[in-house]
Design a protein around this nucleic acid. Sequence first.
RNA 1: GUGGGUGUAGCUCAGCUGGUUAGAGCGUCAGGUUGUGGUCCUGAAUGUCGCGGGUUCGAGUCCCGUCACUCACCCCA
Length: 418
Amino acid sequence: MSSGALQPIRGMSDITAPEIFLWQQLESTARKVLSAYGITELRTPIVEQTAVFLRSLGDTTDVVQKEMYRFEDRGGRDLALRPEGTAGIIRHIAGAGQEAQDARVYYIGPMFRAERPAAGRRRQFHQLGVEAMGAASPAADVEMIALQAHLLESWGIRNFVMQVNTRGVGEDHAAVAEGLRDALKPHLSELCEDCQRRFEENPLRIVDCKNPQCREIVSGIPAVTSFMSQESRDYLDEVLQLLQHLEIPAVANPTLVRGLDYYAHTVWEVTHSGLGAQDALSGGGRYALKLGRGAYEGVGFAIGIERIVAVLMGQGIDPATLAQPPRVWLVAQGEAAVLENMILMQSLRLRGISAMMDLRGRSMKAQLRAANKAGCPFVVIRGDQEMEQGTFQLKDMQEGSQTELAMPELLERLLART
RNA sequence: GUGGGUGUAGCUCAGCUGGUUAGAGCGUCAGGUUGUGGUCCUGAAUGUCGCGGGUUCGAGUCCCGUCACUCACCCCA
């Protein structure tokens, strides 16, 4: 708040308690689910050669053209902070041996895009993503969609909407653009300003324009899939059928568009009405991209963790309830007791019992208050009397009851209820 | 990058058309009980009113600039 203080840069923020408890819970839940699918973590560097992103994302996309944090290092190398996770994974696979061609990996961590922040959009944001290489079949796509639904459900996300579409094989992309231009040409002047620009640059984007008049026009032209090959249409049908068999709650949406150039065949997106204009919780698809000498095909998705957190908070989850208060708070009266409590505290901690004490020499009342505020179930009181007798008062903070114990019994009691 | 909204205590905010020493609630700390938390009562601390400039006898209040936050757009998680 004070202007003199250093603060994080725009669009990048500290994740603090209590929200961090929710983040940690999401991560540990996700790791369990992912292991059930035989998927292992792959941690790639946050910084890569810019070429990694240029080649895999396509150097005409906005993400690459104007949203990358790009810089030159001291050796004059052209580097960038990763704007998404797939490119780094593919870079790894391209450099690894033959067995990496069937990799099934996940990543979790920060991504960077130099955009103007808004609701659900940050310059540093976090994604959990999965990439499954090798198998190129509708079944592989459906497995990823199922996994995604599984993750969302395991986190307790309610009322998400999962939509599926196809972008068609690589050769279809040009045909779709051409077909759309032909169909839209008679209405060109009626389209919104943005769409008139998109007409040349990226006609596919017109299909999901939010402008009502554009929507009206789009609803009057043939579906995007009609410009695709039979192969592409059959592929999508198979995906949709499999989803039904697995009872995955996904619906076909022929106007669903996903931006990155590398998508081919199945694409999907999960949205939630509890978010702002950026209502996508996650998105994914099958992709084919070239890097170095190789061509790589895989299927994957990425989930925006900030948005998951936002939905859960909107559902009324209070992250503060996820805090783990210390099991016992040690209260001391007098310097000798402080020293002995330090020793006791250390030995409790070594046994795995979380313990805390006041280190500022405050009044007993203040120490109890701190214990209460922290939510400790137990307090051990070491006063002058107990020091003389070599005993401890063990206080149950919920009941308010208190018993005098010697060391062996005290340890027994504290360990017993862990 | 473009446009709108907002910046007052740690947090949430009030401060009417510019007028004396800038407020509340919550939180924090202390006391009420020199050995006992949660409830209650009492008291205390904390503000370059985002920053810079201008108008004025006088600016938290008006004007300009700037920075930050926020929302939307392009685009995207």
